[in-house]
Design a protein around this nucleic acid. Structure first.
Lengths: 117, 117
DNA sequence: TTGATGTATTCCCATATGGGCATGTAAGGT
DNA sequence: ACCTTACATGCCCATATGGGAATACATCAA
């Protein structure tokens, strides 16, 4: 067992740069495979495969249009990633840092080592 | 070339469930390798390797304490992930959905197909 | 029907990943 | 000095991933 199946886990699906690019392109609206292929400078089979993975994890959905197939992003599939990483946001967020200061002042605690990292 | 080096890309580093678990445990505070090993039920070499990857991408930092080595999370390394996924938040966020409605009303545009997905 | 266009799928290969096990190394204890 | 504890590394293996090329499918055109 080498790794969580790329086709089952959203985190793995999105770990591939090309797949993120695909999502980014689709974020603007529906696109057929051919468009993506041209925009990304990849081969058609390659794009189809990546789309296959994204479809498997529900990150994209497709709609047939004649002999083309239009793909679109299905954002909610990315929620788990967002939720997970959001827990660490306070580490760099100015907003949370400011809140920390306020809390420290209120409780009289010293937060001096917050960024002593 | 099979995939972006797991040791160079934060997205790949975090794609591994165990590594996310490690970060989650460290989120509560510093921990020595032994603790992590016990808490995760993994072998020590396994944990050390995962920590090695996390360290390579800057997701964790270490501090020597006698013969133990205390690891801690280095949140900012996760910012790229957060920033990327945040762009898709509006797809499921109630907050943004409400904003969309307001904007649609203001501009007179019809946003009816927003969730016609 | 025949042919062309747009996608999906299959097969093979090079590569690197994660696991298991053994070993190297450093710090403490006696 | 010697032994034990705490980690890090190295080596080997099974597996799956992504790329490349060829091919199967489906739809539309003539």
């Amino acid at each position: 067992m080498a790794r969580a199946a790329t086709t089952t886990d959203i985190f793995n699906a999105v770990a591939e740069p090309r797949r993120r690019q695909i999502l980014d392109l689709l974020a603007a609206g529906e696109l057929p495979v051919g468009e993506l292929t041209a925009l990304l400078g990849l081969t058609q089979p390659q794009v189809s495969k990546h789309l296959g993975v994204l479809r498997a994890v529900g990150a994209v959905a497709a709609r047939d249009d004649g002999r083309r197939r239009l793909y679109r992003v299905n954002g909610p599939a990315l929620k788990p990633v967002h939720d997970w990483v959001a827990r660490y946001e306070q580490t760099w967020s100015q907003r949370f840092a400011a809140l920390d200061d306020v809390l420290a002042e209120m409780t009289g605690q010293d937060g001096a080592d917050r960024d002593a990292r």
